[in-house]
Design a protein around this nucleic acid. Structure first.
Lengths: 306, 306
DNA sequence: TTCTTTGTTCGAATATTTCGAACTATGAGC
DNA sequence: GCTCATAGTTCGAAATATTCGAACAAAGAA
């Protein structure tokens, strides 16, 4: 008589695209998933999804049921949440995805702090720079640098991600330190793959906007890799302060033009809108937003130089 | 993890007003109800209803949860019903309440026919002339003669309940057979308790309306009792045709003024609006409406005399 | 064609749920 | 104010449901 469980299984199978994936997400054996699904179909007397070993597709009835079941699950969660006492400790699991570098350097310490305050919450963190499909892979939450474009997802801004132009002190000494953004054009830069645009947009302290284009001498898909290359004196980088602040403090990198604004990317928490947002997840997002704040600690490296 | 079951138990307890009554309705031991409720409250970390051995009242949280849980249950039922295949046989239990006389004479045969066509449906019929509280007593359906006034309930008209003035042939012979409603005023009548109004409203075949008042010589709360009194020649009755048609056909009662309309009461199926209407219940109501029809068989007794 | 991967099926192990009886307590009735 | 019927709770045992893991079958990729 566990109909809600049947609905949950069905919805997750549809979202995940396969029984195996749903089994992983729900921490169940795939045999249990298969059985549940078969039982649900038997109870309804109708086939919800036609499945072969490789492909899987919703029937009309399945499509209809999927939307309704999703709504029922969300309503049930909302009902529970609306009366759940504040004193009841937060519990359950949070599955979250985060970019690798940011995850290790900044999310990790924050998460450890949060976990200590909420011992009944279990975390499942996927550190990965690829763009995960929140719904299909069953994540509750993802951290992204730069605003996501998918309108299926809700996004909440956690903090600013300020970027700064930097190079090794030796580089500036050799190639000259720019006093205007435009002077960067004569420098070589270490480019982040998928940076998209071919130039760097900026706004100067007195409000002037412009774009400067540098020649690339190295391209990579990892910020730390580029940072280390910059420290080694290979060129100029435009990278988030969260990535390079220690190198700056240690004197290995020297930022320039710090009164310039190079388009703030922002650090975002994103989550599916189709699912109900559990209180534990909301609590984590609130915690992260408060902890990082409008002026995150990693921006302190610029305070003396702005 | 059977949250829907928890919600169901909670909702039925609130509706029934006690754990014991809810246990009866759900066919569970009251210990199971108690346990479920305790577990739900523990899971939510909040007290939903304050209960002593005698009294029971909803807390604010309980009130809130009750409404939401009710909606979730209805949504879940609706989701299932909307995809449930037509071929899937109807199953489950129907608890229904019906007035005694009508239940024995007419609902019984109809229900037996329906039950044979749907062997997986289980029936729980309460034959009782008192007005039952559908919600508190957990009925899915009630049959009522005369339109119900409770707006909390949905009502569907099953058929007409035509009433007719009748007495024994001997009575008419002795006291004269009326040719106009007004002439009834000189007769004595056998009154149905709670008939309410003190006169009989009528509309003649040519559209004239009026009210005629008779003196009462016997009052009783059961139609069959009055019918038998009329057969015995104690006076005139105004009773539904479904109650007296056999006596008319047998010649024990003789109806008069049959082209007159004495306010049609109607036979109604009523059910709670808060709950989802299961397909089996809807099927039964449809069946009854079709079987009785606009001109029910018990009105045939008048066909030769109208 | 072969091989990996996916969904299904099965009995055994596990967890959950239920029952019924004994217990406690409340408030109605005398 | 006392008694007693009745309502809710608690407990261990029994019944039920759910899960797992391994063996199996089949579809599509290489």
């Amino acid at each position: 008589m566990s109909r809600l469980q049947e609905m949950l299984v069905f919805v997750r199978v549809v979202e995940a695209g396969s029984l195996t994936a749903a089994a992983d997400q729900l921490d169940l054996a795939k045999s249990a998933i298969s059985r549940r699904l078969a039982e649900l179909e038997k109870r309804l007397g109708v086939r919800l999804l036609t499945r072969t070993t490789r492909t899987m597709s919703l029937t009309d009835a399945g499509h209809n049921y999927f939307e309704q079941a999703q709504a029922v699950l969300a309503a049930a969660d909302a009902a529970d949440a609306s009366v759940r006492s504040e004193s009841a400790q937060l519990a359950g699991r949070i599955r979250l995805a985060t970019p690798l570098s940011f995850g290790i350097a900044h999310l990790g310490p924050a998460l450890r702090e949060f976990a200590l305050a909420h011992p009944a919450i279990e975390f499942d963190v996927d550190l990965n720079d690829r763009q995960v499909d929140l719904v299909a892979e069953g994540f509750d939450l993802a951290i992204r640098i730069a605003r996501p474009s998918d309108s299926q997802l809700a996004a909440r801004r956690l903090t600013t991600v300020r970027r700064v132009v930097a190079a090794s002190p030796a580089w500036w000494q050799e190639h000259g330190m720019p006093t205007q953004p435009a002077e960067l054009a004569s420098h070589r830069h270490l480019e982040y793959t998928n940076e998209g645009q071919s130039g760097w947009d900026y706004t100067t302290a007195d409000g002037q906007q412009g774009t400067v284009r540098l020649r690339t001498c190295l391209r990579a898909s990892n910020g730390e890799f580029l940072r280390d290359a910059a420290i080694a004196g290979l060129g100029v980088i435009l990278q988030p302060t969260f990535l390079i602040h220690q190198a700056v403090e240690a004197g290995d990198l020297q930022p320039v033009l710090t009164d310039c604004d190079w388009r703030d990317l922002g650090c975002w928490a994103i989550y599916p809108t189709t699912r109900f947002l559990p209180q534990r997840t909301r609590a984590l997002v609130d915690f992260l937003a408060a902890r990082f704040g409008a002026a995150p600690y990693w921006d302190n490296c610029l305070s003396g130089q702005a």
